[in-house]
Nucleic acid binder design. Structure first.
Length: 449
RNA sequence: GUGGGUAUAGCGUAGCUGGUUAACGCGUCAGUUUGUGGCACUGAAGACCGAGAGUUCGAAUCUCUCUACCCACCCCA
């Protein structure tokens, strides 16, 4: 391992140039699909007042209790400690932005999406970083189950477009505050006699958030949880029909799902629908996408009561899954033309030609190291240049040079005057049309042969 | 926060039970008769063997501590 004076912080990753195409691929997919569904991009601050996350994510959750990067900011509010936190997720901030900018007074539903980095102080492992990247969407202003289906459909479209297979969709309903209260009581009644045998964290859960008793992975606890009451039996009429309609819409759209009554999201704001897309190919942290409805959140954050829902998708996990399934990434474009030169005059000419070409958006490069011709050609090959030109004294005298197709080795003359850019662009287009067609093309008129 | 694993040049590895100048592949750079890449050949640069301490005449190879990374628990994206 190479050493730098300072190394990157634990749980962070560099994306080096040879990998960037994966991110561009994924971000492209995610944005184009979101736009196809009518979602608009939003950008929000990287940090927010700590209170925002405490109120929304929930003060009993692990995320808030032990995973936030926070600083106090005593001086910011007339001596009152405002305190800031690097966002651990995207929903809180984007909902805050919807409220603060009055967007909930515009036509509803508001449909927004974002790509952003999130920060959680956890111990890193496969698919889990301290700084990770999330694509997310939020739809505010509808309680119709069609919205739930639409949002799930968007997530599914993204995974499909990315070329993924075997991603399982699990859905559940955790009810509204009324039916959930009844269910929580039922859970407490059920677990109470077993409490003695159960783990410490479950004791805590029993008190603070009984829903998560279902989630415990410990053998004894999960064994006990097996026969626990199921939330779906406790849903009120409204929640039940909402959930049933959602299922009907999903089936109508041919989106396969399974109902998993054990899904309990770790963020407190969820109501009714919750869902997860899970990959089995990337280790134990297989949740690629998770989300649900949060009908109470906007009011809780000071907005007018507005039902809403959304999801977050882990971009690192999405890329990991694509890699493990050998999905295709879009390759970056390489250099269009490398202009090699010998001697100072030719070097100047090369730089000048590069400038002209770049004005037309051509990826043009020339020697900036002072290498010999052979080395320049090797470099042109390494950077995968499509064409090359060699400039020396004789070319400058004659006013023309030889343009070489680096893939086929084919060469032709190209004038070194005002027509250079025009001719080269024609060659480039021919090249892009296809290698085979290129060979059959008669470009003699252009090149003046 | 709790466990387990790993740690040798830019990358990937070899180096067995301790013994002279730490090896190989890829990569990088320079050449292979003077103005042309991909192949081949030649050569060069590049590692105080994660850090610190200890055992020993002698350690990359043994012991201890630390750190980082990886994996799992937990939690979530």
């Amino acid at each position: 391992m190479a050493k730098a004076i300072v190394q990157r912080p634990t749980g962070t990753k560099d994306v080096i140039p040879s990998q960037i195409h994966k991110w561009n691929t994924v971000e492209g997919i995610v944005k184009s699909q979101a736009e196809a569904y009518g979602f608009k991009e939003i950008r929000i601050p990287t940090f927010e007042e700590t209170g925002l996350f405490v109120r929304s994510v929930g003060d009993t959750t692990d995320v808030v209790q032990k995973e936030m990067y926070s600083v106090s900011a005593t001086s910011d509010r007339n001596g009152v400690d405002a305190g800031y936190t690097l966002r651990p997720e995207g929903t809180a901030g984007s909902i805050r932005a919807l409220i603060e900018n009055g967007l909930l007074n515009e036509a509803l539903p508001q449909k927004i999406f974002y790509v952003l980095s999130c920060f959680r102080h956890e111990k890193p492992q496969a698919g889990r970083l301290r700084e990770f990247h999330q694509f997310g969407v939020e739809m505010a202003g509808t309680q119709d189950p069609r919205a739930d289906a639409e949002v799930i459909s968007l997530a599914k479209s993204i995974l499909d477009t990315a070329g993924l297979r075997n991603i399982q969709l699990n859905i559940n309903s955790i009810g509204c505050p009324e039916c959930r209260a009844k269910y929580q009581q039922a859970l407490r009644d059920y677990f109470k006699p077993h409490l003695g045998k159960m783990c410490d964290t479950c004791h805590n859960r029993y008190e603070k958030n009984p829903l998560r008793l279902l989630d415990c992975k410990s053998e004894i606890c999960s064994e006990i949880a097996k026969d626990a009451p199921v939330i779906l039996d406790y849903l009120c009429d409204d929640c039940r029909t909402h959930f049933e309609k959602l299922q009907n819409y999903l089936m109508a759209m041919d989106i396969e799902f399974s109902i998993n009554p054990k899904i309990v999201r770790g963020l407190d704001y969820y109501t009714k629908t919750v869902f997860e897309f899970i990959s089995n190919d990337i280790g134990s942290q297989g949740t690629v996408c998770g989300g649900g409805r949060y009908d109470g959140l906007i009011e809780q954050l000071g907005g007018k009561p507005t039902p809403a829902l959304g999801f977050g998708m882990g971009l690192e996990r999405l890329i990991l899954t694509m890699e493990s399934q050998n999905a295709e990434f879009i390759e970056e474009e390489s250099c269009d033309i490398y202009i090699a030169s010998m001697g100072d005059d030719a070097a100047s000419k090369a730089m000048q030609l590069c400038r002209v070409l770049r004005e037309d958006g051509v990826r043009a490069e020339c020697d900036v190291v002072g290498r010999g011709l052979r080395a320049q050609m090797k470099y042109a090959d390494k950077i995968n240049a499509k064409f090359s030109v060699v400039l020396g004294d004789s070319e400058l005298e004659e006013g023309k040079a030889v343009l070489k197709n680096m893939q086929s080795g084919e060469q032709c003359d190209i004038p070194l005057d005002d027509r250079f850019g025009e001719v080269f662009n024609a060659m480039l287009i021919a090249y892009q049309l296809s290698g085979e067609e290129f060979e059959g093309l008669d470009l003699s008129a252009l090149t003046g042969n």
